[in-house]
């Protein structure tokens, strides 16, 4: 016979806590900030140079203290390459390597000694401002962040993060008052940028059209990945990442944008890649690229691609 049918509940936290006033941490908004990139290639060293500039929107509620660029790759390799220069003491030489072995190796250059660059356990490079004065204050820009890599460019994800100085300066609340837990990651903004990638057939687009396949690979693209590209309304530029085949004949290369010759904007070095930003819109924009190359049989052939940009 049970005299107690109800469950016995032993509540360790059954104390009636006094009513607590909750405060919210102030916002650390970075909306409107941007990260621009510029990619160059040195045929002599076969090293790509990726230079970044961070621009903080004037309406930001905090400085930009750091930004990251995803460098995840697919090939395991040593993470330090002596031929890729650094102007910082790399953490790998002091405390160890923490990023995955498949991360794309890079050399890291920071604008000044107020910044440091390191690799995250997820294979991101992080540029971080060490001192409040060196971080990117609202309405300012800081450039001179450089990655050097033997890997060609491709689309990458960047994340801009806010400084938490504003929160660090808050006084501790009195008894009975507390802040709702928060993380500044909430205010991070994610952007598309360009960085080194491990290229493969899976992440390169041939542009379509030509046969045989080897001809179609004279010109390939890491961005876009289709010959019809929808772009958001109001977007006025687009960065095309072109991969040139090993056997192209550079002198035969031509590029037109809506029929206007823009060949001079390209630097068609065989077995290299480059990122070229073109103007698009307001209506449909057609970019036509063409190059001759030598087939494995010794004969010549032409690869011509037309990329169409469709503002939405």
């Amino acid at each position: 016979m049970r005299t107690i049918a109800a469950a016995l509940v032993l509540s360790f936290a059954a104390l009636a806590h006094a009513q607590v006033t909750k405060l919210q941490y102030p916002p650390l908004t970075l909306t409107g900030s941007s990260l621009s990139s510029k990619v160059t290639y040195d045929p002599g060293t076969q090293v790509y140079r990726y230079e970044y500039t961070v621009t903080a929107a004037g309406a930001n509620k905090a400085s930009i203290s750091e930004f990251t660029i995803d460098l995840a790759g697919i090939v395991s390799r040593p993470q330090l390459d002596p031929s890729l220069p650094n102007n910082i003491q790399r953490e790998e030489t002091v405390v160890g390597t923490f990023q995955p072995a498949t991360t794309v190796p890079v050399g890291i250059t920071v604008p000044n000694t107020g910044w440091y660059g390191s690799m995250s356990v997820k294979g991101e490079v992080t540029f971080g401002g060490l001192y409040p004065a060196t971080r990117v204050a609202p309405g300012t820009s800081v450039g001179g962040f450089v990655l050097q890599s033997k890997q060609p460019p491709g689309p990458r994800t960047a994340t801009l993060m806010p400084s938490v100085e504003v929160w660090d300066r808050l006084p501790d609340p009195p008894e009975g008052v507390e802040y709702e837990p928060a993380t500044s990651d909430t205010y991070a903004i994610t952007l598309s940028t360009i960085g080194p990638i491990d290229p493969s057939d899976a992440n390169l687009y041939s542009g379509g059209g030509q046969q045989p396949a080897e001809v179609n690979k004279f010109l390939r693209y890491a961005q876009p990945l289709d010959n019809r590209v929808k772009v958001a309304a109001g977007i006025t530029s687009y960065t095309v990442i072109v991969y040139y085949g090993q056997t192209i004949i550079p002198s035969t290369f031509s590029a037109t944008l809506n029929g206007v010759d823009i060949t001079a904007q390209f630097h068609q070095v065989p077995a290299s890649a480059e990122a070229v930003t073109i103007t698009i819109g307001p209506g449909t924009t057609k970019l036509h690229l063409s190059v001759d190359g030598t087939k494995s049989s010794g004969g010549k052939a032409t690869d011509s691609d037309t990329l169409t940009f469709l503002p939405q």
Binding site: V121, M161, L170, D172, P173
Partner: peptide
């Protein structure tokens, strides 16, 4: 906060800033 993230986690504010 940055190295918390680089190391694979994140920094959080509890009730005391």
């Amino acid at each position: 906060k940055r190295v918390c993230r680089e190391a694979g986690g994140f920094r959080v504010r509890e009730s005391i800033p």
